[in-house]
Design a protein around this nucleic acid. Structure first.
Ligand SMILES: [Mn+2]
Ligand SMILES: [Mn+2]
Ligand SMILES: [Mn+2]
Ligand SMILES: [Mn+2]
Lengths: 219, 219
DNA sequence: AATATTTTTTAGATTTACCTAAAAATAAAT
DNA sequence: ATTTATTTTTAGGTAAATCTAAAAAATATT
C-alpha cells in the first residue's frame, strides 16, 4: 500500500503519542498536527477504513498491527535521513529534523535500503533514537536520566526526552551531543543542579530541569 | 515563493518542452503530464496569475523570466539527486530518474547547497545533462555524435540521444558510461561501423546505429 | 468560401484535506 | 442527580487538482 503525505504524518504522530500502546485522544492529535479536532476526526475515519488504526467514536484511537508496521517504516526513513544529513552533509543536529520531515515521505523502498547500506546500517539517529531495521526491529538501550547517574560514574549520552530547539541550543552550547562521554562531578542539594565533567573540557553546571531530559547509559 | 509539487512538475515539463524559447501547446503538455487538456488549461491559468508563464488562450504558453528561474532550480535539484543516487548509492543510470522525480520537490535551499558541496559541485548528471549552479548557470559542451568524431582523436562520452533500456544494455556490455574516454581506431566503409578504443580495454566494434546516439566532446 | 477536423477552453463534478459553527457525547463539579 | 464544562463528532463549506462532456476557436480540407 501507498499512503499520502498527510496520512503518513498522522500515522507517525499517533505512533509518537504512544498510540501503539495506549489510546490517543482526538485533541492530543489535533494539537500535535497543528489542526482542528474536526479535521482529525475526518482523518481517523479514513485511517480506520484503511485498517491502520482501531477507532470507535469518542474512544480515541490506537494503531493496528499494520499501522505499527507503517509507522515504523516512516520512522525508519526519517531517522536514516537524519543520520545522512548529520553525518554526510554536516548539518547540526538541531537542523536535521525539519528536513527529514520532508525526505521521509519519499517512499522508494530500494532507495531506503541503499541509503541504509551506504550509511553503514546505523542503529541510532543523531538524537540517540533507535533506527528500525527493514523488519521494524530496533535496538533499545537501558538508559537512565542524567539526574539519576551516580557520582563519578563514566557514562555516554544516548538520548533526549526533550528535543525542542531551546533544548538543542542549550546542549550545543555545553558541547553535549549524542555519544558524548560524561560524568557527574558534584550534585548541588540547593537546586539539584549537577556539575558535569566532559573529558578535555572545563567543568560546567547544568540545571536539574535540563539534566532530567538527558538520557545516558553506563557500564 | 514556494510552489506545489504539481505546479513544479508543470513548470519543469514546460521547460523540458523548450518553453523558455518556443510556445508549448496545451496538448503537448497534457501528453507529457499524462493528464487531460482541460486540466492543463486550469493549471496554465493558475501559473499565469502567479506570473510564471506568459499565456493567452489558444496561443500556447511560454515561461516568464521568473518561470525560467524556478524551472532551473527544479532541474538543479533533480540532477544533483540523480548524481547522488548514481555516484553514492550505486544505482544504475536508468533507475535514478524516477527517484529523483520525487526528491526534486524537497525544497530546503540549504539542503541543496550542502548536497552540491558534498558531491563536489558536479557539472553534469549521470545522463550527461548539465547541472545548473545556484545561480541557474550551466556549462554547455560542444558535443558531436560519435560517428562524426575524427580518427585517433581522444574524446569523452558526454551524452546520449537514446536512453532506452536496450541502449543501456548495449552500452554497459561495452563498458561505455558518461565520462568514459574513447577514441575511434578505425571506421568501416561497408556498414559505417566504428572500432572503439577505451584505455585498458580490448578494441571492439560498435554499429553506426548505436554510435550515432552517443555524444562525445573533445579538445 | 464553406465545411470538416483538430485543438483548446468552459461547465459542471469529484476527491482530498482542510475549515467553522453547532450538536451530541462524555466527564467534572455542584 | 443535575448542572456545567470539556471533548468529540456531525453538518456544511472551501480550495487544489483532477476528471468528462460539451461548446468554442483555430486549422485544415474540400
Ligand atoms: Mn512529515
Ligand atoms: Mn531524530
Ligand atoms: Mn517530479
Ligand atoms: Mn538526468
Amino acid at each position: 500500500m501507498n499512503y499520502s503525505v498527510s496520512e503518513e504524518n498522522y500515522i507517525k504522530a499517533i505512533y509518537n503519542l504512544n498510540g501503539n500502546k495506549q489510546p490517543v485522544s482526538t485533541n492530543a492529535l489535533a494539537d500535535i498536527m497543528a489542526t482542528k479536532p474536526a479535521s482529525v476526526t475526518d482523518m481517523l475515519k479514513k485511517l480506520k477504513t484503511k485498517k491502520l488504526i482501531i477507532y470507535q467514536p469518542y474512544q480515541g484511537c490506537k494503531l493496528s498491527a499494520e499501522g505499527v508496521k507503517v509507522a515504523l517504516n516512516i520512522v525508519r526513513r526519517h531517522r536514516l535521513w537524519e543520520y545522512f544529513l548529520a553525518e554526510k552533509l554536516k548539518f547540526e543536529w538541531n537542523e536535521i529534523h525539519v528536513i527529514a520531515e520532508e525526505l521521509e515521505h519519499v517512499s522508494n523502498p530500494k532507495l531506503i535500503e541503499r541509503l541504509d547500506e551506504y550509511l553503514g546500517f546505523p542503529r541510532f539517529d543523531p538524537h540517540g533514537d533507535p533506527i528500525p531495521d527493514h523488519e521494524g526491529k530496533m535496538q533499545m538501550l537501558k538508559q537512565v536520566k542524567l539526574t539519576q547517574l551516580p557520582l563519578h560514574t563514566p557514562a555516554k549520552v544516548s538520548g533526549l526526552t526533550d528535543q525542542s530547539t531551546d533544548m538543542l541550543e542549550l546542549l550545543r552550547h555545553s558541547n553535549i551531543c549524542i555519544g558524548t562521554d560524561v560524568e557527574i562531578n558534584r550534585k548541588f542539594g540547593f537546586d539539584h543542579s549537577v556539575e558535569i565533567k566532559i573529558p578535555g573540557n572545563p567543568l560546567f553546571i547544568i540545571s536539574e530541569q535540563a539534566a532530567q531530559h538527558i538520557l545516558v547509559h553506563h557500564e
